[in-house]
């Protein structure tokens, strides 16, 4: 099940964990402003948006699955 796509998503998870934790967070946590707004506030939301956009882009990529068949994960409706 681990193909390139999921490996990339896992990498994104690691990246997000680093961006949203100390010590990286401490760098943005200083009391200063951009355009009147606190740096910390801007940093958190911009980084967050970035992660969302990259995730959306990655999951929209077609998965190259050489041996498996598409739809093998479909749950058959048991009703």
């Amino acid at each position: 099940m681990v193909n390139d796509k999921t490996a990339k998503l896992a990498l994104l998870f690691v990246l997000a964990a680093i961006l949203f934790n100390y010590p990286v967070l401490g760098l943005a946590g200083q009391d200063s402003r951009v355009g009147g707004m606190p740096v910390l506030y801007v940093y958190l939301f911009v980084a967050w948006l970035l992660i969302i956009v990259v995730t959306a882009w990655l999951v929209s990529q077609p998965t190259a699955r050489p041996s498996g068949k598409r739809g093998q994960e479909d749950i058959k409706d048991e009703n």
């Binding site: 099940m1 681990v2 796509k5 999921t6 998503l9 896992a10 994104l12 998870f13 997000a16 964990a17 949203f20 958190l44 967050w48 992660i51 969302i52 995730t55 990655l58 999951v59 994960e73």
Partner: peptide, 15 residues
């Protein structure tokens, strides 16, 4: 943020 960090992994774990 916790859920947002983990969301890229959902394709593995939640699935």
């Amino acid at each position: 943020l916790g859920p947002a960090i983990a969301a890229p992994l959902w394709i593995l774990v939640l699935r």
